[in-house]
Every structure is written in structure tokens, then in C-alpha cells.
Amino acid sequence: MLLKKRSFYILFLPALVVLIGVAIFPFFACINNSLRFYDLTNPAKGTPYIGGTNYRLLFEDGRFWHSLLVTFYFVIFGVAVQLVLGYLMASLLNGVEKGSLVLPFFLIPMVMTPVVVGLTWRLMYDHILGILNYFIRLIGMTPQPWLGTESLALFSIILTDVWEWTPLIFLILYSGMKALPTEPYEAATIDGASIWQVLYRITLPLLKPVILVAILLRAIDAFKWFDTIYIMTSGGPGVATESASIYSYMIAFNFFNIGKGSAFSIIMIILVNIFCMIFIKIIPEKEVA
């Protein structure tokens, strides 16, 4: 072992203290606040303990369940579309000579400031002045209120997310494909395997670790996703695109109900943890350590 024990502590303790401060403090403060009546618009009542009332209020709140459902849609559909499209793109570029030349262009959507992404798409989605409806009319279809109706808004929001993050999945899978061994494919060609057999029996199993990493990261981000939704619809129309991150923000910072917002936070922490634990069980040990 290279470091002496004392040196290890000198190097690590300062960071550990700060980490505990910024990570542990909020967690316990949230638990504490979630068990209190804590309303910033009603300071006269103080912040007395009320047990599990905030949690009960949430569970009885249809909007809470709806926000979880919307989040679920984002996680499932958003990530699924990104995965399929990213995979197709990676296969395509992998087959094109000098395909890596265009890679830098695909970096732009994912590094662009998300607020700018949201703004750009909001302008493009505009019902009357937006470029998207211009193209729609150009090909002879009916212009749509992209962010204006409930079912369409959900779709449009996911489309923006697909634009922003498919490139990441694509790049993950592309580098995964570049690292694939060639022998199994040569053997498969000799044995006369079909394209689908090659995909299911060779490519997907070999890419499984990178695919899982991609899914894990994107799913967690989709769960936390706030910025572009807030810019494009703020959860509307109605509550159609109101995800858990948007609704919990509303409860805490628009309705100023800190108690209920904290209870929501704790529930979200639990959900993320359950999800991660399931996933870490699936990912082979060596891929993470």
C-alpha cells in the first residue's frame, strides 16, 4: 500500500467533512422537516411535529400520483426511445468509413445549456410562429399545438429530451461497439448466422454492460429532470407534463409547503435508491468498481 495511514487522513478528511456536510445534513433535515407542519406562508403556527401527516396528505393527493406517473413515462419512454435510436445510430456510424469524423457534432446537444435547449425547442414548437409547424404545413399536414394539448405536450417534451440525450447513448454504444472483438462475428459469418441471430446472440450480450450503464444514468437523470420541462411547459397544460421533480418544486417553492415538499423529497430518495439497488444487482461487479 502506497500511502501511510496518516497521509491518507490528511488527504481525505477535508473532503469527507465537506461531503458529509453537503450530503448528510440535507438528508436528515429533510426527514425532520417532513414530520413537521412547516408552511412558510403561515409562520404564526410555528413548525410543530405532526407525525406522518405530510406523507398521508401526499398519498391522498391525486396530483402526487399523477406526477409519479408522468415521471415514469419520461423514464420509460424517454430512455427507451433514446436507447433504440442511439443503438441504430451507433450501428450506422460504426459501418460508415471515417464515421468518427462527425462525432463532435453530436456532442453539441448534450453540452448546450439545458435552459437554452428548452428555449430553442419552445420557439420551434410555437403554434403560430414556430418552424416546426411551418414544415408540417409544407408537407401538407395539419399544424399542431405541440405544447398546447395534454397528450401532445408529453410527446413534445420527450422529443426534446431525445434530442438532447440520444447523442450520449449513441456515443456510449459507439465506443462500446468499437471495442467489440471481431472473432465472434467472423465465426458467425462462417456459420451463416442471420443478422438477427448476430444481434441477439453476439452484439447485445457483449454490449450488455455498457447498455446497462447507459440505462442507469439516463433513467436517474430522467427521474431528476427539471430544467427543460420547466422552460417549455412548467408542467402544463394543466398538469399534463408535471413530473415529480416539477410538482415537488411547486409544493415547496410555489405553495411554500416545506413539510409536504420534504416528505416528497424523502419519497423520491427512496425511489431512486430502490431503482439503484435493483440495477447494481444486475450490473456485473467489475463494471462499477
Binding site: L19, P26, A29, C30, N33, K224, S245, M268
Partner: peptide, 25 residues
Amino acid sequence: RDLLFWILSTRFAPPIAVIIPFFLL
């Protein structure tokens, strides 16, 4: 390994859970 995972997991925390306590503080 557990410590490393804990460090990593702080990045996965929902931002709302981080911000409410800090806002009050």
C-alpha cells in the same frame, strides 16, 4: 467499496431533497 458507492450516490440524490434544507439554512 461502500464508501465509494456512497460518494457516487450523493450525485443521484433528487435535487429537491438537497435544496429545501439549504434554502431554509
